[in-house]
Amino acid sequence: LPEDRSQPIHISANSASINEKTGVTVYSGQVEISQGSMKIRGDRVELYRSADGDVNRIVSIGKPAEFEQQPKASDPVTHAYGLRMEYKINSQQVTISEQAKVEQGQDTFTGERIVYNMDKAIVDAYSSESGDQRVKMVIQPKSSRNGLNP
């Protein structure tokens, strides 16, 4: 939701390692992060800070890592999956890589890398450089979305 970004970030995990020198905290084991309606899950989550100590970047690694958020109250929840996710808090952008997949309502996007803009709920999908992982989109026709048969 639009107000998500001003909400506190809550994290739960089996264990964690705080490095006060580098400012990096690594959470391990059934990690779940929530900020308003946004949730990130993973096996291992790295939390990075800016120079002034604010949390500014979160990297989640899992099999797969998961992301979900409701862009607006009237929108369906967006789900994203991938072996690696990077959430940049200031730019409100999630980059999903390695077997990336995004589901927005009934529409599905897959690719080597997907960049999801949370403010605008925009999905940018990219294929792999080698070309073996192409971008695929499945966009349901409006009529079937409303449950009518063509």
């Binding site: 809550h10 994290i11 959470y27 900020q35």
Partner: peptide, 9 residues
């Protein structure tokens, strides 16, 4: 049993 709470930047 780690539970963390951070302020939004």
């Amino acid at each position: 049993n780690v539970q963390g709470r951070y302020n939004a930047p």
